[in-house]
Simulated scan of single mutants.
Amino acid sequence: MSSTAASGGVVAVRALDPAARGAVVARLDRGTGVLEPARRSLRNGPVHLSTRAAAVLTSDKRRTELMVARGMGWKYAIVPLIEIHDDAAVGVPADVARALADEMESRGVREMTAVIAPLRAHADHLDAGGPVASSPLGRYMGLGGGGIISSLGGF
């Protein structure tokens, strides 16, 4: 299932794995600026988006994620952006990507790698009718945008 934005100032990020049946994996409270993952651990938990937070995109061959950490990286929250399931690329909807980018920019989150522009480019790409597989975020895992991984063929 893809992620969807909820009304009322809260953005609910839903699991990209169809087997998860749309379970919420993170919430962004636009009023307080808190990004809160559903699963918590000692280090994985709510992060306040502010100038003390840093954001990075992380990728491997099957997914691209947003990781936002506060302080020296002791506490972090991870949000899935694109994943491969059954040889199909699934990604967050445009409204979710745009909301994440807007909140990080307005609250002064530091980008350790380019984060805000790729999120907005992903949203614009989807709004223009482009498939997730050719999204600008896909290049981080070798899809679309000039990526070098060709094992997924039929995209």
Rank of each mutant, 00 (worst) to 15 (best):
S2I: 07
T4S: 12
T4R: 11
T4K: 07
A6V: 02
A6I: 00
A6E: 07
S7P: 10
V10I: 15
V11P: 04
A15G: 13
A15L: 07
A20D: 14
R21S: 11
G22N: 07
V24S: 07
V24M: 05
A26G: 10
R27Q: 15
R27T: 15
D29I: 01
R30G: 15
G31D: 09
T32C: 08
V34S: 04
L35C: 08
E36R: 11
R39L: 08
R40A: 12
R40N: 06
L42D: 14
L42F: 12
R43T: 15
G45L: 07
P46V: 09
V47P: 08
V47R: 05
H48M: 08
L49I: 15
L49R: 11
S50N: 10
T51A: 15
R52Q: 15
A54Y: 01
A55I: 06
L57N: 06
K61V: 12
E65A: 12
L66P: 06
V68D: 04
A69L: 03
R70L: 02
R70N: 06
G71M: 06
G71D: 15
G71Y: 09
M72F: 11
M72L: 12
M72S: 09
M72I: 05
K75A: 01
A77M: 01
A77N: 00
A77V: 00
P80K: 09
P80G: 09
L81F: 03
I82N: 00
I82S: 00
E83H: 14
H85D: 07
D86I: 02
D87V: 12
D87A: 14
A88W: 03
V90P: 00
G91V: 03
R98S: 10
A101F: 03
A101W: 02
A101G: 05
D102A: 13
M104C: 11
S106V: 08
S106W: 06
M112E: 13
M112K: 10
T113A: 06
V115L: 10
I116R: 11
P118G: 11
R120D: 07
A121S: 13
A123S: 13
L126Y: 04
L126I: 15
L126H: 08
D127M: 10
A128W: 04
P131T: 12
S135K: 01
P136R: 03
P136V: 04
G142H: 02
G144L: 02
G146A: 05
G147N: 02
S151D: 13
G153H: 12
G153I: 09
G154H: 14
F155E: 10
